[in-house]
Amino acid sequence: MMLLFYTAAAVAILATLMVITRTNVVHALLYFIVSLIAVAVVFYTLGATFAAALEVIVYAGAIMVLFLFVMMMLNLGQSTQEQEKVWLKPRLWLGPCLLSLPLLVELVWMIRQAPDANAAHSIIEARDIGAALFGPYVLAVELASLLLLAGLVAANHLARREDRS
């Protein structure tokens, strides 16, 4: 399980790096899907099987499909790839990298400081998640559903066509 975890984590990090550095948008998206599946494997090795399944169904299976759908609609070709190449000059990487380096160091330091989380030893069943969602976290769930409803109404309003009759 330990080996599986670290392999999947390494794949996730490498794939995410590839997402950022690709200039071809479809290739970047493919790497993104690989990264999400790798994160799902990480969840699985930590015992969160339900979260792993949802990661693949919702993120890799639905949201990324919508990304792809928009890409098809826009039909980006060679020109955007050239544009991306111009935007992604190596010199431009320098500033953000220097700034995020301290953040990385801080993160690693905090993880080293934290007590051993020991997460890998209990399997979280779907019914535990259901009980948590509709028990202590019911307010958050309801708020999220309200937010989604608002988004739905707004999308409907934007997409509605006025009748000319």
Partner: peptide, 17 residues
Amino acid sequence: LNIGLLWILAMASLAAY
């Protein structure tokens, strides 16, 4: 698998790619 049905839904959504 204790998430068998979800596994199938996940694979079906990946097959769409």
